[in-house]
Design a protein around this nucleic acid. Structure first.
Lengths: 178, 178
DNA sequence: CGGCGATGCGTACACTCGTACACATGGGAT
DNA sequence: ATCCCATGTGTACGAGTGTACGCATCGCCG
């Protein structure tokens, strides 16, 4: 599957797609807008990604990898002595501190699975792998509930334009984690 | 602001918009598709709603009213002796039993606020009014957390195409509610 | 009763989009 | 050396879109 002339072209198109979604939203994603952003001709995007869904799948997968790395870097998640709820609340704080734009972008891709069945397996991958990560510190059901609560809290912050309250998040996560 | 020839035309357009979003998603919403669904000429939709955002605001507001009524009808929410977590879990079960399509539709409208600032006040209205409803049974912070968890659970079901597990929801809601 | 403005209707325009397709190029297999 | 085909490019077409605008219709107010 070696690519000849421009081996990284496919990757550059994915990066461009992520930038387009970040600036114009999924509604502004088109073969043409991606081609312009990646500085490749129109035919090149349609060649590498037959449909926009394919491109969205690749973009969501990359976005997931980015966040998964952030969680993996937090060694505290592996330390049985650390405060799990507090650590998760702190991670969310960092997440929002990194700029609202990034969170909006990643959630927009994630939520797109609601109406695009092709994205659901990728969204499920994300949930499952995160749940597995948390399962080293608690039981699977609790892990899934922690993720659900984090999703819900992020949603409320992003949808209503409110502020993230780390102390509140820590308290409620602790009630779940016990 | 009396409407003369067809006083209910505006309402019919909103209903048609909701049906269109239900069947084709927000991506399929256009002045023309709504006009066809409502059986009115194209010019009529652009007259009543200068932009699609205006139409979405009206649709989201109506969708919120529908769900708010469901919650109000559940008298158990007002009964201090009833099991709050169990009742909420039961309501979610009913919600999903009513067909996945309806939940998808309402969440799609709700989540659209992520990228459309014009919708955020309406989304915030919804969260606030629901939180107020729950505040009759618990403190405000707990009420908001219950909503966040319910949102997160619904999201996981809808995004990954999984099944709703009422016992699991009841257990986790109980941990929050105490 | 007369006209004015709100409401409703139909059409046309400029634009973007996805898609298809014909052609160019050069790496690697034979 | 030669040929095949994955890769890359440019263009064209039809469908769909938001918007604007002129005209029709009728309730209300003076």
């Amino acid at each position: 599957m070696a690519r000849r002339y421009d081996p990284e072209r496919r990757d550059r198109i994915i990066d461009a797609a992520i930038r387009v979604v970040g600036s114009k939203g999924i509604a502004g994603l088109s073969h043409r807008s991606v081609a312009a952003e990646a500085d490749v001709p129109l035919g090149s995007t349609t060649y590498h990604f037959a449909s926009l869904d394919e491109l969205l799948i690749a973009a969501l997968r990359r976005s997931n990898e980015n966040f998964a790395e952030v969680m993996r870097e937090s060694g505290a998640l592996a330390d049985p002595a650390a405060d799990l709820a507090g650590e998760l609340a702190r991670l969310l704080g960092e997440y929002f501190a990194g700029g609202r734009g990034r969170a909006e972008l990643e959630y927009e891709l994630y939520l797109a699975a609601l109406r695009r069945p092709a994205l659901r397996p990728v969204a499920a991958e994300w949930t499952d792998s995160t749940a597995e990560l948390l399962s080293r510190r608690t039981d699977p059901a609790t892990a899934r509930a922690l993720i659900a609560l984090m999703d819900g809290i992020c949603l409320q912050v992003l949808l209503t334009g409110g502020e993230y309250d780390e102390a509140y998040a820590r308290e409620m996560l602790r009630r779940i984690a016990g």
